[in-house]
């Protein structure tokens, strides 16, 4: 058994087998895994907002999908991982409170997931598995040894994607 590396909110980190990388209680935030099957190295981003260019106060780069992914890619490339060998798995982006109106607040989970898809497309990284949306929180843990992404939620069976 390896170590377990914890990623907080608006945070990112990288990890290699046999370690695993985990983030607890993803709500409307989005969790993005970048994974290289060959070297068994991976990175996780826990982003809160889709787009850093829409926000005045954008110093904390891991808070956003766009700048967070840019930094995560740079970290992995520094470890010798080639961008062309990376695949992605995406989780989170739930709508925790169900408002009747489609307000700015209730749509944020979906917009985070959309931003993740768009950004990854821009980098030519394909998403090979996704567990997003719906109305519940998720604790997610990725194991680079097997490439499995474990999803845990309150009152639901554990799934692997």
């Amino acid at each position: 058994m390896g170590k377990r590396i914890r990623v907080g909110m608006a945070d990112l980190n990288i990890c290699s087998a046999p370690d695993s990388i985990i983030t607890l209680g993803l709500g409307s935030c989005v969790g993005i895994i970048l994974y290289d099957r060959v070297s068994k190295k991976c990175g996780m981003l826990h982003a809160m907002l889709p787009d850093s260019t829409k926000i005045r106060n954008n110093g904390l780069r891991a808070k956003f999908v766009d700048t967070g992914l840019e930094d995560l890619l740079a970290m992995l490339e520094k470890e010798g991982v080639r961008r062309s060998s990376l695949v992605a798995k995406v989780a989170g982006g739930a709508t925790m409170f169900n408002f009747s109106s489609s307000s700015e607040i209730s749509g944020i989970g979906d917009r985070n997931v959309d931003a993740a898809r768009e950004c990854l497309k821009k980098y030519n990284i394909s998403i090979i598995a996704e567990d997003t949306g719906k109305d519940y929180g998720r604790t997610v843990e990725f194991y680079p040894e097997t490439g499995k992404f474990e999803i845990r939620a309150v009152g639901r069976d554990v799934t692997f994607i």
Binding site: L24, S28, L49, M96, I108
Partner: peptide, 20 residues
């Protein structure tokens, strides 16, 4: 009703638009 981090992500995101 859910995990603390999941529910608190909602206000956290709103604060996140303005600061850290």
């Amino acid at each position: 009703f859910d995990m603390a981090a999941s529910i608190l992500s909602v206000p956290a995101i709103e604060f996140g638009k303005m600061g850290d």
